[in-house]
Design a protein around this nucleic acid. Structure first.
Lengths: 241, 241
DNA sequence: TCTTGCATTCTTGTATACCAGGATACTAGT
DNA sequence: ACTAGTATCCTGGTATACAAGAATGCAAGA
């Protein structure tokens, strides 16, 4: 692999490793139970163990890895209760925020939101889904900004990570963008006419679209979820008993 | 200083350093702008830089430290907007949770809560405030459990850390416990008769007691807060410009 | 006296060497 | 054939050595 010409800036290299591993876990390329060792990953990226170690530790705290001292580091399974609670966090915070935003939004804010909607429409028309998802994120963050709580976004981000892992398993992203755009536009309309209740209703539905199918997804991909996996770290814990 | 006989369990030593530094920052013993170096702290605790480094990184991510590469590590000032948003997070999540709990609580749950209230009353009577605050935390966590969202508590915990830092500056903890206990009891009463709206109202007031005085506290302790500190890391950034 | 340049020193970032403990595979004994 | 014991390997945990950059102090010149 070997990235990092280095010299860019300290800790930038580790950041890149983090983003790469994080993405591979969320996208399911690294399956739960997969074993990662500091030495191997470090070798793959042309780094020593030290910076890789910090990345592992960060992913461990976020619930993506399980570091077992003297044994190994493994990709963590998805915990359904944890995902459920992440949904609770995101839905609760974003819904109250959008209600506040509906009350606080200035004409300039509404204009900015409408511009974001336009950009999203263009992205879909161009088939540039990566950009669309970036704009999606940007819009939700902007709503939090209008509500006057910019720092809350990082809480949402950590919750979202768990949800994205499930969302990716549903694979149905092909047809979703249009619906998401529709919901975004409706939310902005509600905000424009200061309809807090309407905005909350749409936001709730919006945030639940990806979450709704979790039971079905868990049934279809049992090896990704916690509880009686056939292989992976479950085997380790089983042998411990 | 020198703790850690080691051999207890891996990473336990670092955990102790974390808790100690965290406590000293929250309690204000380490003032914003104070300089910490990995080597000095490591020496003080009888550890090498490696485990201390991970502690620094963690405190940095939580907003308690500012690590500036090749320069040093400093205790971060309190950011009023960050505290405000932490309050938003805690209040929003706990209020919805307590409403859910009011609907979901079984007689056994109510009994457990009432027992917690009794324990809190005993602690105050004994003057054991440390135990009281532990029971306070336990009660809030238990409410989240009744609401069916155990994992949300760790989100609250990180938000609470920022709030505790402000709360400590208010110093008025001597007369508070009685009031807090009163509020706790009222919340449990609301839950017992499934009065969600009432529980939310009391919980909101309860959570805002510590937060209410933030403006005054910021005015009384300007050196603890972000924005035009007379000394500390502000001086560094000033020189950069 | 003030400014400018340099060298020293201190910081974190990174790499590497060593330690302790658990998992595994092999071997000896039954 | 199977079980128990043991030796080895592999893991993360820790300590330490080295590198790169920034701040500071001093000295030399104007």
């Amino acid at each position: 692999m070997t990235i990092a010409p280095r010299h860019l800036s300290p800790r930038a290299t580790g950041q890149q490793v983090y983003e790469d591993l994080h993405g591979r876990i969320v996208r399911g390329e690294l399956r739960p139970g997969a074993s990662l060792t500091e030495a191997r990953i470090g070798e793959a990226y042309g780094l020593s163990r030290t910076p890789v170690r910090e990345v592992f530790w960060r992913l461990n705290e976020e619930g993506f890895l399980r570091v077992i001292p003297q044994v190994g580091t493994f990709v963590a399974p998805i915990s359904v209760p944890a995902v459920r609670d992440a949904q609770f966090v995101r839905e609760t915070l974003e819904c109250r925020a959008v209600a506040d935003a509906a009350g606080l939004a200035t004409p300039a804010d509404v204009l900015a939101l409408q511009r974001l909607i336009q950009d999203q429409r263009s992205s879909i028309a161009d088939g540039d889904f990566a950009n669309f998802f970036a704009l999606d994120e940007q819009m939700h963050r902007h709503l939090m900004l209008i509500a006057g709580h910019p720092f809350v976004w990082q809480v949402i981000t950590s919750a979202k990570a768990q949800l994205d892992r499930v969302r990716f398993l549903s694979l149905e992203q092909g047809t979703w963008p249009a619906m998401i755009l529709e919901q975004h536009a409706t939310i902005v309309d509600c905000i424009a006419r200061h309809d807090a209740a309407g905005a909350v209703a749409i936001m709730t539905a919006h945030l639940r679209t990806a979450f709704a199918a979790i039971e079905r997804i868990a049934a279809e991909h049992p090896d990704f979820f916690e509880g009686s996996e056939p292989s992976g770290i479950a085997a380790i814990f089983r042998k411990r008993a």
